[in-house]
Amino acid sequence: MSAEIRMTASPPSKTAPWKAYFSIFRIELLQKVQYRIAALAGAATSIFWGIVEITVYTVFYRYADNNAAGIAAGMTLQQLASYIWLGQFMFLIQPHVPGEFTQKITSGDVGLELCRPMRLYRHWFARLAAINLSSLPVRGAMVLLAGIILPGGYRMSLPASPAGFAATLISAVGSLLLCTSYGMFVTSVRMNVSWGNGPMFILLLVPGVLSGTYLPLQLWPDFMQKFLLFQPFAGYADLPIRLYIGSLAPSDAVWAVGLQILWSGFFIFLGNLIMNRQLKNIVVQGG
């Protein structure tokens, strides 16, 4: 038997200083990076996936009836190989709603979280950012290492220019911000217990397809290119990678990063809005 308690929660009047949220980010990151063996096992999958992708693309570039189509789309096979490895790397920061969150939501422990003198949105935002980032130090590094040491056509090239590399780094930070904002938006939607996981998974699937990690956006149909560049999820991976391989000039980073920040702001606003509405009428399950 389970009892249901309906409670009305309002955000605490006195919220914690920003330093507290930063500490949470740090603790979560340090904790998650501990799982090194698991990260290595994961890296094997990423590297395998990268090799298969490059193999398939190479077959198209060499043997397809219309094998010049890739170059015509503005991408050499060498650039594509770099794209694949960086795509595998950036894929690791794509958000999901962590099991810890869904468990707290389903079990009602979220009520406990609300007792803390912190805004739930900011608290979980800090944790999610750390979780998104936590795969990079070991698993991500192994993926890039594979790209650097693999022979011949599987090798990742150097960045197009030093300025381009700097632009990539800045844009990668933008990606993390965007991914976390969107992940928190989905978390807010997931707080409605009675709908289960369905809506969440659909919301998480769309960005994956449109981020470029499924298929580099430049190889999508020509008539979609304008749309693909400005939709929010190009900022997940495609924009920073384009800056790296030189499909975008370093000066383009200004609008590319601007776009990432704009979309992040949009999802942060939306996430806060939804979470506040959900918290007003939250159902805590338990018994």
Binding site: V56, Y63, N67, A69
Partner: peptide, 12 residues
Amino acid sequence: STLLMFDRFGSI
């Protein structure tokens, strides 16, 4: 991705 690649590159 497979569909779009075949669309752009034709058969192999």
